[in-house]
């Protein structure tokens, strides 16, 4: 079970959080202008890296705020935590 440092509440058990998938997948500004494959890409296609991965979490049993986490998908080490809307920090390999 992960120990996640919510930017507002500090370290809490993973049980208190909901997972929100890959971060920085913005809703297209002009959905009407997209082809079906582009729209499908937005809806369904996500990265699956072996290594650092920026993803969204929600402190659903706490402050109910969404935020972003960079987690190493092999070791589960959490490399960064930052509020939603901020750019992904540079993680050195």
């Amino acid at each position: 079970m992960l120990l996640i440092a919510c930017p507002w509440c500090g370290e809490r058990e993973e049980l208190e959080f909901h997972y929100g998938g890959q971060a920085h997948v913005a809703h297209p500004a002009e959905p009407e202008g997209l082809s079906d494959s582009q729209w499908g890409e937005y809806l369904f296609v996500r990265d699956n890296p072996k290594g650092p991965f920026a993803e969204r979490w929600s402190h659903s049993a706490g402050c109910r705020r969404w935020f972003n986490v960079v987690r190493h998908t092999v070791t589960h080490e959490i490399l960064a935590v930052y509020p939603a809307g901020q750019p992904k920090p540079v993680i050195l390999p």
Binding site: H18, G20, H27, R56, S58, R65, W66, A84, G85
Partner: peptide, 13 residues
């Protein structure tokens, strides 16, 4: 409620 909060916080802050 989860769904509404997600959109409010992440897409339409």
């Amino acid at each position: 409620l989860d769904w509404l909060e997600e959109w409010l916080q992440t897409e339409w802050p």
